[in-house]
């Protein structure tokens, strides 16, 4: 464990908690893509199949449970909470995410560390995390609504990606046999998509600030 990875995990967790608290506090999920949140929950559920079989460390186990619980809590809030679900932009959140799930699964069958159930699902979760932001990106382009996507959320999400890439560079230079091609290549694609999301976030935020007429 290095400081970059620890900080990356913390900023990732904080970004999820910020979103969950924002939805819970405002009882609104306007501008948030349920499909992206469902994909994130699927990422954690398929990545942590080894939760009960392989024990890496207490930190690892606790964080896995927290990630699964917080991502499912967001999906539950957006689907079941009587007040929150009313503000869901159902007719704008129309990205066909089932095709993305299928494509990632087929890719995982072809490209994985080892052709076992656990490894195929692990690779699937890595590919899926890279493209999970797409429904949110499309919704943001359509709605331009950043009410619930606070700047802090975007900031911590960006920090998570940046710190993980630094972590991989650090491990590459300090560990002799560090090769995580699947995670690194997919992580770079993910960071590229996040950069695109941040760009549209900035455009929407700038437009909104202009729209708010001076009092």
């Amino acid at each position: 464990m290095n400081i970059f990875r620890f900080a990356g995990d913390m900023t990732h967790l904080i970004s999820i908690l910020i979103l969950l608290l924002k939805i819970y506090a405002t009882k609104s999920c306007a501008g948030i893509s349920l499909k992206t949140q469902e994909l994130y929950a699927l990422v954690f559920l398929t990545r942590y199949l080894d939760l009960f079989t392989d024990y890496v460390s207490l930190y690892n186990t606790v964080m896995k449970i927290v990630f699964i619980a917080s991502s499912l809590a967001i999906v539950w809030c957006m689907r079941r909470h009587p007040l929150v679900r009313r503000s869901y932009d159902k007719d704008l959140d129309t990205f066909r995410h089932q095709y993305v799930v299928l494509a990632c699964f087929v890719l995982a069958l072809l490209l994985n560390e080892k052709f076992t159930i656990q490894e195929v699902f692990w690779a699937f979760s890595i590919y899926l995390e890279a493209v999970a932001i797409l429904p949110q990106l499309v919704l943001l382009q359509r709605s331009g609504n950043v009410d619930n996507l606070t700047g802090q959320y975007v900031l911590f999400l960006g920090a998570y990606r940046g710190l993980y890439i630094i972590n991989w560079i650090y491990r590459y230079f300090t560990e002799d046999h560090f090769t995580r091609w699947i995670a690194c290549v997919s992580g770079l694609v993910q960071t590229g998509l996040y950069a695109d999301f941040f760009y549209y976030y900035y455009l929407s935020w700038k437009t909104n600030t202009k729209l708010k007429l001076p009092a």
């Binding site: 464990m1 990875r5 080894d50 890496v56 896995k64 560390e113 080892k114 490894e119 972590n167 995670a183």
Partner: peptide, 10 residues
């Protein structure tokens, strides 16, 4: 002996 795959990252 194949290198054990360890997914220690979250």
């Amino acid at each position: 002996e194949e290198a054990e795959i360890d997914h220690d990252e979250l």
